[in-house]
């Protein structure tokens, strides 16, 4: 239970790499090997219709969050993807982005249901 007692125990802004749950990242690395190839060039986000329409969606950043284990952040935004596949077309590294999204969704569902990844 996360309780705020008002004594300034604010949530740390740092990415707590050691504490974070990186199971999902490992899960996706296993099932979508091309995912490891991302160089964060941002072409996917640039072309993404959703990213252009909403402030909070950024497919490249989702990847980074995923690698760092910030799953809550991903879960908030992942459903906004329209699956159009433009990101996949512009990706210079040939990452199978739609599969990444699909497996992410599946992994998040499993984590929420406390299933084993």
């Amino acid at each position: 239970m996360n309780q705020d007692w008002g004594y300034g125990i604010n949530k740390d802004r740092q990415i707590d790499f050691d504490r974070n749950d990186r199971r999902l990242a490992e899960y996706i690395r296993k099932y979508v090997p091309s995912y490891k190839l991302c160089i964060s060039c941002g072409a996917c986000t640039a072309t993404c219709s959703t990213a252009n329409l909403t402030d909070f969606y950024n497919i490249r950043r989702l990847n980074i969050f995923l690698m760092r284990g910030e799953i809550d952040e991903i879960a908030k935004h992942i459903d906004k993807c329209m699956f159009c596949g433009k990101c996949e077309l512009v990706c210079p590294r040939g990452v199978n982005t739609r599969q990444v999204i699909l497996i992410m969704k599946e992994g998040i569902k499993k984590i929420k249901q406390n299933e084993q990844l």
Binding site: S40, C41, G42, A43, C44, A46, T47, N52, N58, P92
Partner: peptide
């Protein structure tokens, strides 16, 4: 950021899309 695409405006200028990563 890698430019994803360019489009042409009516005045001939080019509109580019990129992510400021």
């Amino acid at each position: 950021g890698r430019v994803s695409e360019a489009a042409e405006n009516i005045d001939g200028t080019i509109l580019i899309k990129v992510e400021d990563t």
